[in-house]
Computed example of a mutant assay.
Amino acid sequence: MDNVHTAAAVAGVRRGLSTPSYFARELNRLYNRQLFRYEYNIDGVDVMEEEWDNLIVLDACRYDLFADHHDLPGTLERRISRGSHTVEFLIGNFSGKDLLDTVYVTASPQLHRRHDRINTVFHDVINVWQREWDEEHGTVLPETMTKYGRRAAKRYPNKRLIIHYIQPHYPFIENPEIDVGRRLQMTNGGKDIWEQLLAGETTVSRDDIWQAYRNNFRRVLPSIHELLDLLVGASVVTSDHGNMIGERSSPLPIREWGHPSGTYTEELVMVPWQVIPSTERRNIRSEPPKNRQQMISSDPPESRRRSTEHIARDRLRDLGYYD
């Protein structure tokens, strides 16, 4: 175990001393990652080896939610993800690779925040989270991602595109009464809704959580339709990982919530793979990376007042990440 993994394990065990569910979660992680020998789910598929020109990633979208409620064209398949957490997905698919034929358009700050661990080079990275954060909801809205996806497709006609939406990951746009993200930091010790549920510190029901999660998925669908109508080439809609809503984890059968890393249950690693029919492919080619991981538009005034690292941490807190 390296220093990073040792520190994470020690922190988890310490928290588990006061809350048994946390302790069981850490033991499950140790088991699934084989005592942290691996940083991701080695049984998952390498998405960069699959056939697509456009990969649309819906964050935290489990397979059954997608299968039951999507209305997208094409054929639905299944894939096993390399992670139960976005960072694991990024490490498992991108780490150590020069992806100079690919542009990554993302609403998630995770690549930026963990770039030293992920260690990859894209032709360009468009950090939508840095420019277009919706302060009311504490996220990047779906229609904003579609706007940036459209711009990227126009600007980079000869590149593979990965367009990473946040939804259906909370905050729950349509159910703000369950949106606990950053506002909870002041009212409940910084725990998000999943941590509250794990610790038994909330009366929000499983049915209410499912409804809010489902509504977030339905909220993103029109934006995905709009984007697909604009894209040229072979497209796939998938997810980086799923989400647990009270199902039993393994090997210790605690009720689990959210998407803890190193937890490779079916609800977390089985993801949709919706193949959109296309009669044409783009002529993809590799080119040297841009001088910096830039956004399409100029940096906002906020970036001049505060460091990008500070902004990334704040954004991740809004999404429920506190490390």
Rank of each mutant, 00 (worst) to 15 (best):
D208L: 05
G181F: 02
N188S: 05
L227D: 10
L231D: 08
T202L: 09
L197M: 15
V220D: 10
G181A: 03
E201T: 13
A234W: 02
G181S: 07
W194L: 01
D207T: 09
D179W: 02
L221S: 07
L228N: 07
D179N: 15
G189D: 09
L230D: 09
R218K: 14
F217V: 05
W210N: 12
R183Y: 04
S235W: 02
V220W: 08
G190H: 10
N188G: 15
Q185H: 14
R206K: 14
V204H: 11
Y213R: 01
L227W: 00
G200L: 04
V180F: 13
D208F: 01
I209P: 06
H225T: 12
R206W: 05
R218Y: 00
L227R: 09
R183N: 13
T187S: 14
P222H: 06
L227A: 12
I193W: 13
I178D: 00
H225S: 03
S235K: 11
R182H: 05
D208Q: 15
A212K: 05
N188T: 11
G189A: 00
N188L: 03
W210K: 11
M186Q: 14
V236R: 01
G190P: 06
L184E: 06
S223G: 07
V232L: 01
A199N: 12
V232K: 15
T203Y: 04
K191L: 12
Y213V: 04
R183C: 11
I178M: 14
V204N: 10
W210G: 00
G190A: 11
